[in-house]
Computed example of a mutant assay.
Amino acid sequence: MAKLLMSIALCLLLVYVSEARPMRKPFVLHGRVYCDTCRAGFETSATTYIAGARVRIECKDRNSLQLVYSVEGVTDSTGTYKISIADDHGDQMCDAVLVKSPQPDCAKVDPGRDRSRLSLTRSNGLVSDTRFANAMGFMKDEPASGCTQLLKQYQESDD
């Protein structure tokens, strides 16, 4: 009987210790922020990437939709951000969201490209701690010169 109680106590202690310790390795989220120079609504060969753009990671409770986690990052000279996320958020809805563009002439959020849904859990079969977000973008106030010809290349022909 004493061995049984000791075994149960040891198991409970192991469970408690494993739940209380911090995560071994954080997730690292990679993404890019672009400026839609042609106002096309998608990335083109004329697209530029924005250095110094601010991005926020938001995780909300699935039931109440209340914000439970938030962290911000900034893009580097290539328009790329890398944000470290310490916790597993498998029971939450997480998004990367555009916050601000440092370019005054490219500061309007591109509708539909202002956020990217994320999977920030280890319970999804992914082995790597690296996660990737879809590119998000802002639009130029006025299309750049040469965009008309560029966008004609993207049009489908009905031949």
Score class of each variant (00 low, 15 high):
M1V: 06
A2K: 02
K3P: 08
L4F: 03
I8F: 05
A9H: 01
A9Q: 09
L10Y: 12
C11D: 08
L14K: 05
V15L: 14
V17L: 15
S18N: 12
S18Q: 11
E19G: 05
E19D: 09
R21P: 06
R21G: 08
P22Y: 06
R24Q: 11
R24T: 09
K25W: 02
K25I: 06
K25M: 01
P26S: 10
P26E: 05
F27D: 03
F27W: 11
V28W: 06
L29C: 01
G31V: 09
R32W: 01
R32P: 06
V33K: 00
Y34N: 04
T37D: 06
C38H: 04
R39N: 15
G41K: 05
F42W: 15
E43M: 15
A46R: 15
A46T: 10
T47S: 15
T47W: 05
T48Y: 01
T48Q: 08
Y49A: 05
A51N: 14
A53T: 07
A53R: 02
R54V: 13
V55H: 02
R56L: 07
R56F: 02
R56C: 03
I57A: 02
C59T: 10
Q66N: 15
L67E: 15
L67R: 14
V68H: 09
Y69C: 10
E72C: 01
E72W: 01
G73R: 09
T78L: 14
T78W: 00
G79R: 03
G79V: 08
T80M: 13
Y81E: 05
I83P: 06
S84W: 08
I85C: 05
D87Q: 13
D87A: 08
D88H: 09
G90V: 11
Q92R: 14
C94L: 11
C94R: 07
C94M: 11
V97K: 12
V99E: 08
K100W: 00
K100P: 00
C106Q: 07
C106V: 05
A107T: 05
K108Y: 14
V109Q: 10
V109W: 00
R115V: 00
S116D: 01
R117S: 12
S119N: 07
S119E: 10
R122T: 12
R122Y: 00
G125V: 04
G125I: 12
L126H: 00
L126E: 13
L126I: 14
V127F: 15
T130Q: 11
F132H: 12
A133W: 05
N134H: 13
N134K: 13
N134V: 10
E142F: 04
E142P: 02
E142D: 10
P143E: 09
S145V: 12
S145R: 14
C147R: 01
C147D: 02
C147N: 07
T148D: 13
Q149Y: 10
Q149T: 11
L151D: 05
K152D: 14
D158I: 12
D159A: 07
